[in-house]
Amino acid sequence: MQQLLIDPDRCLGCHSCELACAVEHALSKDLFAAVLNKESSAASIFVETDGETNLPLQCRHCQEPACANACMSGALQRDAETGKVLFNRDRCVGCWMCVMACPFGAIEQDRGQKVISKCDRCPDREVPACAGACPTGAIKFVEIAEYSSDRRKRYLTEFVKER
């Protein structure tokens, strides 16, 4: 299964992923057209920083998704085959239960439309727009096996800074 992996050390905070995400989820899927036609769109990836390290964060498509567990309308469900946590906009009633539940703050409220928005991992693309747009490789879309256990360990040991 391919996963979006994040290497916070490589993130320069350029926000290109956010822009690419918004473009991919605009009607035209084209930067110029979307801007010229004033298409409404929003990113579902967010570049955050703690002042030292930048972190581009989108829905992690968790194995045990707290959002889908909290969703009382059936709008959020995890697809067992693809591992994606899928969102059905038509079923969303804007109760914000998922917003309350997601431990990553990765779900946004569209308060005007009374629905949420979140990463759909770009169903129309082979590589999600954020990973494709990242100039430094901080966001990568790779087979999970390609990431060595060393690498995983490094993330877990070196990145963790107790505050």
């Binding site: 926000h15 290109s16 822009l19 918004a22 473009v23 930067l31 494709g132 747009a133």
Partner: peptide, 26 residues
């Protein structure tokens, strides 16, 4: 990919409070 902010001209580096960029979608 080349930077969309630069492509649209909405990146400003004219002072040391920046760089700033405008989100064309919000």
């Amino acid at each position: 990919p080349q930077c969309g902010f630069g492509t649209l001209g909405i990146c400003c580096r004219n002072c040391l409070q920046g760089p700033c960029r405008i989100n064309p979608f919000g």
